[in-house]
């Protein structure tokens, strides 16, 4: 049991896993193009993994296994440090890396959550028509338009659409544009493109990222830990340099 624990908290194991994840992801990146890549970004990860053959997906399966082991190694290392040093006064010496680890673990969990229970859908819809979100909410696309630079030019910088729903009807609808989606019950409606015509047609995407909140929490924890680590490490180095000189 002790040997297994030592293996789980081993720094060497962590280093090897980090190196292997880099190598496997690097190898996989060279095959990530064409229809396979398009499909990967148009559906949740585990749906894609189930749909394509192992000859295409091997590197991502391997990455997931290695990341799972790395997450376990991270969790065990942090648990070991917290158990051993919890009562020590030098909290700033051991806490920042554990916050970074906690942030990393939350982000990995967030990816897993989105990969399992996420939703991605696309729809081409003419102005004036409507569609339903997966939860049944009705959305009408009242207007489709383009965004042009105030300095002129005939190429649009982006597109916009006026959406009218039961929620937004009171305020005359809500306009979506790049970086300004509309959210309802965890679903986000995004405008990707539009084609002029009579009527103009919008390409909309509907996404659900159940891991987004957890990823944000992880990012906040990670950033706090990172800032504390920078603060403590720079102070300890300066102290060491001054001690050396003394």
């Amino acid at each position: 049991m002790k040997r297994l624990w030592n293996l789980l908290i081993s720094l060497e194991v962590g280093l090897v896993l980090l190196a292997l994840v880099c190598i496997v992801m690097g190898a996989g990146s060279f095959g990530l193009s064409g229809d396979v890549a398009t499909a990967l970004n148009s559906m949740p990860l585990f749906v894609w993994l189930a749909e394509f053959s192992l000859a295409t997906t091997w590197w991502l399966w391997l990455t997931i296994v290695l990341l799972a082991l790395l997450a376990l190694n991270t969790l065990c290392c942090s648990a070991d440090t917290v158990f051993q040093r919890f009562s020590s006064n030098a909290i700033l010496a051991w806490l920042p890396p554990q916050l970074i680890h906690a942030g990393f673990l939350l982000i990995v969990l967030a990816h897993l959550q989105s990969a399992l229970w996420g939703f991605k859908g696309a729809i081409e819809i003419p102005e004036g028509a409507g569609f339903q979100l997966p939860d049944g909410a009705a959305v009408q696309v009242a207007r489709v338009g383009a965004i042009f630079s105030p300095m002129g030019g005939d190429r649009p910088l982006g597109y916009k659409a006026l959406l009218v729903t039961q929620e937004t009807a009171g305020q005359g609808g809500v306009t979506i544009s790049p970086n300004h989606p509309w959210f309802s019950n965890g679903y986000g409606v995004y405008i990707k493109h539009a084609e002029p015509g009579q009527p103009p047609v919008a390409l909309l995407e509907v996404h659900r990222e159940p891991g987004a909140a957890m990823a944000m929490a992880g990012a906040v924890l990670f950033t706090i830990g990172n800032l504390l680590l920078l603060h403590t490490r720079s102070r300890s180095r300066e102290f060491m340099l001054e001690s050396d000189e003394a």
Partner: peptide, 19 residues
């Protein structure tokens, strides 16, 4: 998340960023 509806895309750039 605000631009594409996801905080992660499977593109070579993002993979190499993670690497």
């Amino acid at each position: 998340y605000y631009a594409w509806g996801t905080y992660w895309l499977w593109t070579p750039k993002e993979l190499w960023t993670s690497i």
